[in-house]
Simulated scan of single mutants.
Amino acid sequence: MIKQLITDIAYDNISLTQALTRAKLIESKIKNKPFKDWLKNEIEGYEDLDIPEYRIIPAPIILIAEFQLGQQIKIEVNLPDSFEQQTIEVSKFHKILMPISTIEESIKNITDPEWNMKLSIEHVDIFSQLYIKNVKAQGGWIKKGHRIVARLHFQNVVDLTKQKLLDILMDLNEKFPNLENDFENTKQNNETVSNIITNNIYAPNNNLNTAAGTNISIKSEYKNDLTPVQEKTLKDLGVNEIEIQQLNTILSENNKDKPEFGKKLMGWCASVGSSLAGRGIYDALPKISEFVTQLM
């Protein structure tokens, strides 16, 4: 069961939704609650407070200022530090709460590199505070807005979720080669399972020690800059010198384990993805996403 599932995932024989659903059979054997909850959330969707970091993506907000005679002006929201930190975060990032099946369908059906997500009236009212006075002074109003989301970011959520599931199953298969038939819920086995689940789902770096009984310290090791080989790889994919310098700056400024690091990487990824898509280089987008994922 587990070996066949690993093969089907690795060779894309089934959708990620199907893979997560079949993984529930594995969870029924090991009875690990974090794994059960993660599978449920990925399949059915997340509550706001439970959202994992890899589902939080950069998504700038654009307000539409309308004037008489049908004139419209787009305003990109950039809130000052005087706003509450939570509001500033909301203005910059979007939480993808939807089930993985909906994300897969979105990627399949929407081929544009970017698309707009309509803002609620409440959000428009909140984010227009900074601009409405000047707009009204010119006889205009702000009643609508949207987020700009990149298809690449949705694809990255699918890729990361797939990789996490695959790593979990491979680690379980390595530790328990005959899991379907002879797994026992002993204390030692449960500790091993818990380490595997925790490291692969929640750790920022999956290459961690999963030995039973070991106290694991989760710590990211960020590289300070790109190697010449990595830079050549990016250039071959169509990334220009300025974009490579921007990536090196992100890497050099984040030599500690900071949540912002992943967000900055994904922001760079979205920007480069849009640039490549604008030049018609669509084949490179998945490879860029994979490249960035390896840096996280």
Rank of each mutant, 00 (worst) to 15 (best):
V158H: 01
I132D: 05
I196R: 00
V157Y: 06
I197F: 00
N185Q: 11
I168Q: 01
L208E: 07
L166H: 04
S106D: 08
Q230A: 15
V158D: 02
I107Y: 08
N200A: 01
N195M: 07
Y202K: 14
E122M: 07
L237E: 03
L165H: 01
T198G: 03
H123K: 14
N134K: 13
I142T: 05
W141I: 13
K162D: 05
D125G: 02
K108P: 01
P204F: 06
N215E: 10
L251C: 09
I201H: 00
M117D: 03
T214V: 15
D125Q: 14
E191V: 02
D125A: 10
E122S: 13
V124K: 01
D167C: 04
E243P: 01
N205A: 05
E191C: 02
H146S: 10
G140C: 08
S252F: 11
T186A: 02
E122Q: 10
I216E: 10
N254E: 10
Y202D: 13
D171T: 04
K187V: 14
Y131D: 07
N189W: 02
I244W: 05
A150E: 12
R151D: 09
T227A: 13
N189V: 03
T161A: 15
E114P: 00
P204Q: 07
Q230V: 07
I148V: 15
M117I: 15
P113S: 06
Q155N: 12
G213A: 07
P228C: 07
A211R: 07
Y202E: 14
N254R: 11
S128I: 03
K133I: 10
T214Q: 12
V135L: 09
N206K: 14
V135W: 09
Q163F: 09
N116V: 00
Q138V: 04
I110E: 01
N109R: 04
K133N: 12
D112S: 11
N254Y: 12
T214P: 00
N205K: 05
V193F: 03
N200G: 00
I126C: 02
N215Q: 08
I250L: 10
W141D: 12
V157D: 08
L165Y: 07
K118G: 02
K175E: 15
I121Q: 13
I121M: 08
N185D: 04
T249M: 10
N116W: 00
Y222T: 13
Q138D: 13
K235T: 15
N240R: 06
Q230I: 08
N209V: 02
I196Q: 01
V158Q: 03
I110S: 01
D236T: 11
N189I: 00
I148C: 02
D171W: 01
R151I: 11
A211I: 05
K162E: 11
D112I: 02
N181G: 04
N200H: 13
N207P: 00
T249H: 12
L237D: 00
L169D: 05
